[in-house]
């Protein structure tokens, strides 16, 4: 460790860099990793505006001309509009319901003292670790029994149940930190319990609620396993299974697959461009303490 003595004091504004590499090597590694993460995505983007003939000629050429009509074709002719709207309806409904139901339960668990509080919390929370197969096969049978198999309503219900534990867990943690004084004051002013939830907890907890909204939205937008098991009708496919089915039918049509994939990614990327910090916080909410 001879580099220990070579600690110049001139670069104090920067924290010291690993001496074993030096600045140039570090920059190289960082540059390489950036290409590694963003490269595949940019490659996909270029392919989405080229047709399959052009792609086969050279997979890595810059698009010329930019064939934006690829998106129109994918949207209209390859039924990606159906998949997109199915996804949107299911995910938005499920996220709205799970947030409201989860927030109500989280509030009761965080605020009130009653027998069995921690038991209920533990029961709801523990199902976070359940492997999905333990409910998958039975949910399939149950939805068939109740005529909800192959319906967007059934899928929405299942999605609500999938995200409920995480929602309750995250919101309970946040709500518990709201100062009790606020609630005491509200009681003095004659607020009822429901009013307290509606007029104090929801507004004050909004940043936390936004975080869980984002997390739930991304996770459900990307959900594949339950959708593929519970939906069989092509008209009712969500985006992930729609893309997968399209790929199965048109394995060679790389340009069109790329355009379809881009359609599913664009909403997420637009949201990310505007709310990158919020999205990062939302996605890591369970792990950062």
């Amino acid at each position: 460790m001879t580099y220990q003595n070579a600690q110049p004091h001139g670069i104090k504004p920067f924290k010291p860099l690993p001496r074993l590499f030096g600045r140039g090597a570090l920059a190289l590694v960082i540059g390489a990793y950036t290409v590694y993460t963003l490269g595949p995505f940019l490659w996909l983007a270029t392919m989405s505006v080229r047709n399959t003939g052009e792609i086969s000629a050279d997979h890595y050429a810059w698009p010329s001309p930019f064939r934006w009509e690829q998106f129109r074709v994918a949207w209209v002719d390859s039924a990606f509009d159906t998949y997109f709207w199915n996804s949107a309806i299911v995910v938005v409904t499920a996220v709205a319901v799970v947030t409201l139901v989860g927030a109500a339960a989280a509030h009761a668990l965080a605020r009130y003292r009653f027998r069995g509080n921690r038991i209920i919390y533990g029961i709801l929370f523990s199902s976070i670790i359940f492997p999905p197969q333990i409910t998958l096969i039975s949910l399939y049978q149950i939805l068939v029994d109740y005529n909800l198999y192959n319906s967007l309503t059934g899928l929405t219900l299942v999605y609500i149940s999938l995200q409920l534990p995480l929602t309750v867990y995250l919101l309970e943690g946040f709500f518990a930190r709201i100062p009790q004084d606020l609630f005491d004051a509200a009681k003095m002013d004659g607020y009822g319990d429901i009013e307290i939830f509606r007029r104090i907890v929801l507004p004050i907890g909004m940043p936390a609620i936004a975080t869980t909204l984002i997390l739930n939205f991304i996770q459900l937008w990307n959900e594949f396993l339950f959708a593929v098991v519970l939906i069989s009708d092509p008209e009712k496919r969500t985006l992930p299974i729609g893309i997968r089915a399209f790929m199965g039918d048109h394995f060679q049509d790389i340009g069109m697959i790329a355009a379809g994939v881009m359609i599913s990614v664009i909403p997420v990327i637009i949201a990310y461009a505007f709310f990158s910090e919020k999205l990062i916080r939302g996605m890591t909410a369970g792990a950062v303490k």
Binding site: F41, N222, F224, R244, V268
Partner: peptide, 11 residues
Amino acid sequence: WFTPVLLSYVV
């Protein structure tokens, strides 16, 4: 570097 986390497994 965080971008891939947001992409679905299908993508």
